[in-house]
Computed example of a mutant assay.
Amino acid sequence: MQPFKAGKNVVIGENVTFGENVTLGHNVIIYPGVTIGDHCIIQDNAVIGKQPTRAKNSILPDVKHLPPTKIGSGVTIGTSAIIYANAELADDVFVADLATVRERVTIGEKTIVGRGVSVENDCTVGLKCKLETNCYITAYSTIEDYVFIAPYVVTTNDNYMARSKERYDKFKGVTIKKGGRVGANSTILPGKVIEEDGTVAAASVVTKDVKSEDLVVGSPARVIRKVPENQLLRNQE
C-alpha cells in the first residue's frame, strides 16, 4: 500500500522516502533521494529536489550534484512552487504558490514563505518568520526567528552591480536578527544588518545598519524614534 495519495502524472525518483498521510497533486515531480515527513501536502505542478542549473557566465561554483532535499512533517508546498536540492524545510513550514527555495537553504519551523517569494541560495531562515508575497531574499542572507518581511521587499548582495572582478570575494547578503521587521517595497543594501526588533518603514532604502528597537524611515532610511513598547517581540503574547 502506498504511503501517499497522488494525482495524475506524478513523477517520483528513486529512493524517495515518504512519511504517513502525504498528499501529492497533479504533475508533481519529486527528484531522487528526497525525504518527505508525515502529513505533508504538495500541490499541483510542484517540483521538489531539483538540481540547480548553472549559467555559462555564472560566478557561482559549478557543483555537479547536491544532496537531496529534506522536507519535515506537516509541510505544505503550493502550486508550481520549486524546492531545490540540498534545501531543508522544518516541520509545519508553509510554502505558497509560485515560491522558490534555492539550494543550501534552511527554513525553520512554522515559517510562512508567501506567494511568489524567492529565497536564493545559501540562506538561513529561522522559525515562525513571515516572508510575504513577492519579497526577494538575496543569496547569502541570514534571517533569524520571528522576522516579518512585507510584500515586495528587495534585499541585495552586490555593491558593484555586476561590474569589476573586485566584487567576486565581496558578495554579502543581509542579516535580519530576531524580531526584525521590514515594511512593503523597502530595499536593503548589501551586507546591512537589522538588529533585534529593528523596524524599517514601508518604501525605505536601508543604507546603514539598523540598531536594536530603532524605527527607521525614508530614503536613505533614518531613525525617527524607538519602536513602541507594545510592538516589541518580548511583549507579544
Rank of each mutant, 00 (worst) to 15 (best):
K130G: 06
Y136H: 12
V34F: 06
V174R: 04
E229C: 11
N21I: 06
Y31L: 13
V47D: 00
I83N: 07
V105D: 08
T69I: 00
D97R: 14
F4Q: 08
Q231D: 15
T23Y: 11
T207W: 05
I29R: 15
G218S: 05
L232V: 07
I149H: 00
V154F: 07
T199N: 07
N27A: 08
D44T: 08
G114S: 05
Q236N: 10
T142L: 02
D214K: 15
N9E: 11
D145I: 00
K211L: 14
V16E: 01
V205E: 03
V28N: 03
N9I: 03
L215C: 04
G37S: 00
I176R: 00
S58M: 06
T53A: 04
I36G: 01
I83A: 02
V154D: 00
A6M: 01
I188G: 03
I143N: 06
V28I: 15
E14I: 00
V147G: 09
G19E: 04
H65M: 12
E103T: 01
T100G: 09
S204Q: 07
V147Q: 06
E14F: 04
G191A: 02
G183I: 13
D38Y: 06
F4R: 03
F18C: 03
L233E: 12
K226C: 02
S73R: 12
A87Y: 06
K177N: 11
V210E: 03
D122T: 11
D92E: 14
C123N: 02
I112Y: 10
S219M: 15
V223Q: 14
E237T: 08
N15Q: 08
R102F: 01
A184W: 09
V101L: 05
S219E: 08
T199M: 06
V75P: 07
H26Y: 06
E109D: 08
E109L: 12
N27Y: 15
V153K: 05
R104Q: 14
T207P: 06
P228S: 07
E120F: 04
R163I: 12
S186D: 07
R181G: 15
T100N: 12
E213R: 14
V174N: 09
S212L: 10
T69E: 03
E229H: 10
D44L: 01
N121R: 12
Q231E: 15
K70D: 05
P67V: 00
T142Q: 02
V10S: 08
E132R: 11
A81G: 04
P228Y: 07
S80D: 14
V216I: 10
